[in-house]
Nucleic acid binder design. Sequence first.
DNA 1: ATTTTATGTTACTAATTGGTAAAGTAACCA
DNA 2: TGGTTACTTTACCAATTAGTAACATAAAAT
Lengths: 112, 112
Amino acid sequence: MSTDQLSLALSALAHPARRAILSKLVSGERTVSELAEPFDMTGPAITKHLKVLERAGLIERSRDAQRRPCRLRAEPLKDIHNLLRPYQRFWDESFERLDALLDEENKHCGEE
Amino acid sequence: MSTDQLSLALSALAHPARRAILSKLVSGERTVSELAEPFDMTGPAITKHLKVLERAGLIERSRDAQRRPCRLRAEPLKDIHNLLRPYQRFWDESFERLDALLDEENKHCGEE
DNA sequence: ATTTTATGTTACTAATTGGTAAAGTAACCA
DNA sequence: TGGTTACTTTACCAATTAGTAACATAAAAT
């Protein structure tokens, strides 16, 4: 597995349960059991998903008595957003124009 | 593994080699060997990465004699972009304001 | 002190990933 | 027909991931 932050964040998001967990955190801190509740998933499974998210820097955890609340950290998402930026024009243009754009680019830097 | 398009696209991007391949395709069609050249990687390894990208809908392949040129397909990237949108305000705001935002949200929907 | 609640750890399994070497296919070239 | 180029397929391997059941810990409530 690739251990750079960007790869970690992307592969953390590549699971519906983890995306659902993140989206729950948009509205604020949540405990592990609050996050686990809507999923038909055992405790250890949730714990592992949270570890993946934590390792990717997408959540932070604190302590509140026996609870371990999770909160969102959006920085890695910003990196993904930046990764996508060079491609954005490909979906902002109509699909017919894509070929034209590619051909145009080829004239400039296609020969090495 | 999750087989929905979004998960496939995200996990396809979660490898530096595949991101590098995609970024090469921004400037137009490339053959397999053109894509393989900068990596210290065997043919079969590249073929596998291309299959992952193809399965995720991020590239299309055609035929030109014995060559199998690849071209970019950006739609799945648009889906990722849309996935990120709800989080965007978290990095557009200063980090001090994040807590305030979260607390504000909690007042509205934190009690169930 | 004991129980309950909340969460984590360990040990195990099955499936997937990322890589290799070696053989196979497909199109062009002489 | 035979050789070369371009790429794929077929085993095979080691490492990782996603899940489970069972057990462990930590704080609060009784």
